[in-house]
């Protein structure tokens, strides 16, 4: 009796063909994007989206054309951070036109499709009580659609802000035809570094290129005396030797960051001269340099 692989085609159901068509659309879209970078973290609450928004703005300040995909489908916040919350995506001739944030940063996010800010992401489903069986499949397909159907145009950088958790990297790897680099965000706590190590180990297994680690909340500037103080114990700082990847930036905590996020203005735009603003600019320069260095390598 024949087995699955003895039979060519799928008898006309055309499921494989349609999935292949979607992948082909995505490959074509990605040809106009020079560098696609995923921003990952091991755990939530380390400021990954804040870093993404500010890195996007800082890269744009350096003259790069930048897009951001908010890949956190269930908890999107990038529209708020980039000051475009409430704006709607529009249909254009080449797909969905992304919202334009500061300095022309282009954004696609589930947030821009939801009818109001408190609307949850709920899917029509004949088996709603068993979403564990299908949610991963629909989220991967939705992520692929956002990437392929957004009219990104020519971009120097597409930043993909992933939800927390090492497994998200695996999901993205299955969708993206290519990912040119990963940036891992963590804070100087041993718990955060334990989980970010898992992301780094997974990235290595997937042969993904790790650009480095961003240590967020590495210190804070006393508003009274101007001294730089630690937020976490000294021994908890990011250990390059432990992680085995370069530290791209140490971002000091700045109370103005929260206000800037709420107001939709990246801190690096509003307070470029502040220590955190300078750190984000340095991060953008190092990311640009590392990506350029790769282009020059044979």
């Amino acid at each position: 009796m024949k087995t699955y692989h003895d039979i060519a085609g799928d008898g006309g159901s055309d499921i494989v063909g349609q999935v292949a068509g979607r992948e082909a659309r995505l490959r074509v879209r990605m040809t106009s994007i020079a560098h696609s970078l995923a921003i990952v973290s091991g755990k939530g609450g380390v400021g990954k989206s804040t870093v993404t928004a500010n890195l996007a703005a800082a890269l744009a300040m350096l003259g790069h054309r930048v897009g951001v995909l908010d890949a956190d489908l269930n908890g999107p916040c990038m529209a708020r951070m980039l000051g475009v919350q409430g704006r709607a995506l529009k249909l254009g001739a080449d797909g969905v036109e992304p919202a334009l944030g500061p300095l022309g940063v282009k954004l696609a996010s589930m947030d821009l499709l939801l009818p109001h800010t408190a609307a949850p992401v709920e899917w029509h489903a004949p088996a709603p009580g068993h979403s564990h069986a299908w949610r991963g499949a629909i989220e991967a397909a939705a992520l692929g659609e956002f990437l392929a159907d957004t009219a990104w145009g020519e971009l120097d950088f597409l930043l993909i802000d992933l939800p927390p958790g090492p497994e998200r990297l695996d999901g993205l790897h299955g969708v993206l035809p290519r990912c040119d680099g990963l940036i891992a965000v963590t804070i100087p706590s041993q718990v955060a570094q334990l989980t970010v190590q898992r992301s780094i180990a997974l990235a290595r297994r997937l042969n993904a290129r790790l650009l480095g680690v961003v240590e967020n909340m590495s210190s804070y500037l006393c508003p009274h005396c101007g001294a730089i103080q630690r937020l976490f114990p000294a021994e908890a700082g990011v250990q390059r030797a432990v992680l085995g990847v370069p530290v791209l930036a140490n971002i000091p905590f700045d109370p103005q960051l929260a206000r800037c996020c709420d107001e939709g203005v990246p801190l690096v735009l509003a307070h470029q001269a502040a220590p955190a603003g300078r750190a984000f600019m340095g991060l953008a320069e190092r990311v640009g340099a590392r990506c350029s260095a790769r282009e020059e390598c044979p």
Partner: peptide
């Protein structure tokens, strides 16, 4: 564009 997302979301713009 965004056919799956728009079709399958319970509430969307």
């Amino acid at each position: 564009p965004l056919e799956l997302v728009r079709d399958r979301l319970v509430e969307s713009r």
